Structure formats: structure tokens, C-alpha cells
Amino acid sequence: MPAIPSFAEEQQLWSQSTMAVAGLDEAGRGPWAGPVYAAAVIFPAGLDASKLHGLTDSKLLTRTARDRWFEVIKSLAAGFGISKTEAEEIDRIGIVPATKRAMLLAISQLASCSHILCDAMSFNPIDFLLLPPAQQAEVSHLINHQKSYVRGEQISLSIAAASVLAKVSRDREMCQLDERYPRYGFSRHKGYGTREHQQTLLRYGPCPLHRVSFKPIKQLLEVGL
């Protein structure tokens, strides 16, 4: 049974007068098509956790629940940021740097941030070079104020909240992109490597949303589709 996230990690920092604690997570690292999204969420220090009862890893929530939590999180948050890296950039720099770039851009949208709690990702000095100089200056201090967790969405409510904002934002964009590229069924599989997606790729070949550096797409291109 999945663990229930809490404010335990945040409270340790709040008790040390570190108030602007951001949860950070991504959505869309694995799909074959579309952008990778990231979100950062800061809740007011001391927020009553009961107001977030039932919030957990976005992947464990139904679509209806995610949509509801999306609005609740935005209404309760002291601040949040949502960003993305497009497929073309993913192909250029790789999925891990692209994910970190989206995360750092999301953080840069916050009015202030003292510490980050991140799901399964940590940052080193070279990662900040993924940003324009002005934004590097805004977030580079966090190199010494970060903590990473395995399955962080099931530990920290701030990370769980970020996972919801990132996933809902990405899913909604993939539904919009489905209207532009209706052959591929993006509104159903969101770019993941489902059987339906594989079959449409074999029939039509990749579209501009596909990550051509990913092995399944690269193999299709190599055989001339």
C-alpha cells in the first residue's frame, strides 16, 4: 500500500525558519512524444495538512481527482510554477537535462524559494547552465538547499502537489495537440508507448511531436518510415 504523504519534511525546515519550501516534480519523461513538464509548489508554512487529505502521487489518482486537486492546490499554494521542455529540445540535450531544465524554469517562476524537495532528481552546478543567465542567478543558491527522495510524491505533500500540477498540465496539452495531429491518439495515451501508439507510428510514421532520439522512434526512422 502506498505511503501517505505529509508535511513532515517541510515542518523540519519550517521549524528552522526556512519558510519557502518548494516541492518539485515532473511529468512526461517516458513518453515517445510531446514535452516534458515540471512543476514547483510552495505551501504556506504551517498549513493544516488536513486541507490536503487524500492528495498523493498523481499517478495514483483518477483523472477526475487530479483535475479537482489541480484547482485546490492552486488555491492553497503560496506560490507555484509550471514549465516544460519541448520534444525538439529533448532530442538536442537529452531527456534528463531537459527534465532538469523544466524543473529549474518552474522554480524560477516562484517569487522566492529557500529550499527544494525533489522527487528522484538532484541538481549539480552544471545543471544551472541550462538556463539563461538571469534565471541562473535566481535559482543557483539552491545548489546547497535541496533534498531528493525516491517516490517523493508519497513522502511530501509539496512534491505530491507538484506532481499533480505537472501531470494535469501536460495531459491537457496532449489533448490539445491531439486536435492538431488526430491520427496518433495523443488524447488517449498522452504520447506513451502503448500498443495503439505503436500501430499508428507503423502506419503513419513520426510527427513533429515525436522524440526522434528515443530508441523506438529512431528505429522507425532507420527503416525509412
Rank of each mutant, 00 (worst) to 15 (best):
L129E: 15
P133N: 10
A134I: 02
A134K: 09
Q135A: 07
Q135D: 13
Q135V: 06
Q135I: 07
Q136K: 10
Q136E: 13
A137W: 03
A137R: 13
A137P: 00
A137V: 05
I143M: 04
Q146M: 04
Y149L: 13
V150H: 01
R151I: 07
R151H: 09
G152V: 03
I155N: 12
I155C: 08
S156F: 05
S156Q: 01
S158F: 12
I159H: 02
I159R: 02
A160L: 07
A162N: 01
S163K: 08
V164F: 03
L165Q: 05
L165S: 08
L165E: 01
A166R: 12
K167M: 12
K167R: 08
S169L: 03
D171Q: 09
D171L: 07
R172Y: 05
E173T: 10
E173N: 07
M174W: 02
Q176S: 12
L177M: 14
L177A: 06
D178Q: 06
E179T: 15
R180T: 14
R180N: 01
R180W: 02
R183I: 00
F186P: 00
S187A: 15
G191C: 08
G191F: 09
Y192Q: 04
Y192D: 09
G193Y: 11
G193K: 07
T194K: 05
T194C: 08
R195W: 03
R195N: 08
E196W: 14
Q198C: 06
Q198H: 14
Q199I: 11
Q199W: 02
T200E: 11
T200W: 04
L201E: 07
L201G: 13
L202S: 12
Y204V: 14
Y204Q: 06
G205T: 13
P206Y: 11
P208G: 10
H210G: 12
V212Q: 13
S213R: 01
P216Y: 11
I217R: 03
